[in-house]
């Protein structure tokens, strides 16, 4: 199962847990299963049916993953980080 690192500002939803293992072969499946285990997480990660533009998803070190179809491996590591702003863009 993939390992999902929970951002510290969302750990209130995972009872303080920093890392969780989640089944799923795509990013979308991982997010659905994550929300089943810890209700409310998806609501924080989504906006208007897509991953909120305030968050960048990192899968195995690949930054800026947006597609829910993105393949996830058994040993994958997933992070949700604040989007880089004020640097190369204009947030």
């Amino acid at each position: 199962m993939a390992t999902v690192w929970i951002p510290s500002l969302m750990r209130s939803l995972t009872h303080g847990v920093e890392k969780v293992t989640v089944p799923g072969s795509t990013l979308g499946e991982i997010l659905d299963n994550l929300d089943k285990a810890y209700p409310g997480l998806k609501n924080r990660l989504y906006e208007e049916g897509r991953i909120t533009p305030h968050i960048t998803v990192v899968v195995d070190g690949e930054m800026g993953i947006q597609g829910l179809w993105y393949p996830v491996r058994e040993q994958s590591e997933i992070h949700f980080l604040p989007v880089i702003s004020g640097g190369i863009d204009l947030d």
């Binding site: 533009p53 305030h54 800026g64 989007v83 880089i84 702003s85 190369i88 863009d89 204009l90 947030d91």
Partner: peptide, 11 residues
């Protein structure tokens, strides 16, 4: 409204 712009977002 927030729009994606490059790697970031913009209001």
């Amino acid at each position: 409204k927030i729009e994606e712009l490059g790697e970031g977002a913009i209001n």
